[in-house]
Design a protein around this nucleic acid. Structure first.
Ligand SMILES: [Mn+2]
Ligand SMILES: [Mn+2]
Ligand SMILES: [Mn+2]
Ligand SMILES: [Mn+2]
Lengths: 222, 222
DNA sequence: ATACACTTTTAGCCTAACCTAAATTTTATT
DNA sequence: AATAAAATTTAGGTTAGGCTAAAAGTGTAT
């Protein structure tokens, strides 16, 4: 019964997936903000997603949506496309890591399974995109995702950057300049209680980062 | 005044360009057939293309459309994308020449100028796609296109294949099997008057081809 | 010059996805 | 428990781009 998912549909599924990582349902307002669409429009679309056959989402009026297994599969398929594309654009075509997101956002909807398979092979079946986000495998199993924010660390903890938020190009350019990229090792030297600034050592240098930065860096403790 | 051309708009412009190679205007019916859209819908769309600012087409009721300079630029931009993509998919990603058209048809609408520039560079600024079609250059100047059909040759003419029609995957697979690809040299040995069959020599072998094949192969005389 | 076939346009409808404004429901605060 | 604020849904509208059926225009063959 599943025909062809439109671009708008896929964007909604991806957004719902992203907002449901916590296991909770995604709210109309949060979806509206993330998709840059009026809340009323989101309600309308959600209702249609819930009425497809098979349904793509479960919807309880006034209580948000969650993905059905069908919807989640579709979301994972698109996320796989997105992250493989980002990796390909970065590693094979020389895009910088702040440019890949926007391009992948458009390409993810139109590439064939053949294209996906080709770049997956060329890249050697990568497991993470340039920002450290995990790439769902061929069976659409999503590896665990780093969820500890750098902002939660306190001296004298040490950590390795695992991934960074890829949605803000300006932030990405800043992070690259400071070598705040996946794989980098850092040691927490100090924490300022009121502004939340962290002083940390990276590559032998000391830098101070505010919460607007550390909130978007995810680490694993070293 | 022009913001962003929709996918449908770009498809129309490309089709009008293709149907106007002869210098004549494109008819409603021919566009409908090529785009797989009802003739009435084509009339509706054409009217809108003629009313954009600046106009993309010139339209005279009952007498077809032609591209304005603005429309032609837009068409050439898409054709450049299409042919660069076909070349990239073929040369760099290992797609066979009968698979590239369909994939490029979807990708051509979403790649950025950055993506275009990157693959153009990786490919070494190619001038022809895998089927021998010329690629408009960076200034959107379209090289001359081979227009002599193999079907018009008679013994004992000799020729080199310059390009083949890329719209039918089955034909392309057949042609490849017979080495009827751009660059191949052939000698006309015989012509059958009623069925139009041509007997020709290629790579030292003799083959007989009907008009359904020879009509879609374009050559330059050797 | 007329008649008929073919092409094209008009008229009226439809769907997907958006929008704003108004109504309603939920939730948070007293 | 009442009310105010915030979130959500409903109602009504728009635009792009399709569709079919019917009307009208064009060109050809007698
Ligand atoms: Mn896929
Ligand atoms: Mn990413
Ligand atoms: Mn371009
Ligand atoms: Mn081609």
């Amino acid at each position: 019964m599943k025909k062809h998912l439109t671009r708008a549909t896929k964007d909604y599924l991806k957004a719902i997936y992203a907002l449901s990582v916590n296991g909770l349902s995604a709210s109309t307002n949060d979806l509206a903000k993330r998709l840059n669409i009026a809340a009323a429009s989101v309600t309308g679309m959600i209702k249609r997603l819930a009425q497809t056959n098979p349904p793509l989402v479960d919807y309880r009026k006034h209580h948000g949506v969650t993905l059905t297994p069908t919807g989640e599969q579709a979301a994972l398929e698109i996320i796989r496309h997105h992250r493989l594309l980002e990796t390909y654009l970065h590693d094979s075509l020389g895009f910088s890591w702040d440019e890949v997101h926007e391009e992948a956002e458009r390409l993810e909807h139109v590439i064939s399974e053949k294209f996906e398979a080709r770049i997956d092979k060329v890249l050697g079946h990568p497991t993470h995109d340039p920002h450290g986000d995990p790439i769902p495998d061929l069976n659409l199993v999503m590896p665990q995702k780093a969820s500890t924010r750098l902002s939660t660390l306190r001296p004298p903890q040490e950590a390795i950057i695992e991934r960074v938020n890829d949605e803000d190009g300006n932030l990405l350019r800043y992070l690259q300049e400071k070598s705040l990229v996946p794989g980098s090792k850092l040691k927490i030297r100090a924490h300022s209680p009121f502004d939340g600034n962290l002083t940390l050592e990276i590559n032998g240098e000391e830098i101070i980062l505010g919460p607007a930065v550390t909130h978007h860096i995810f680490i694993k403790e070293a």
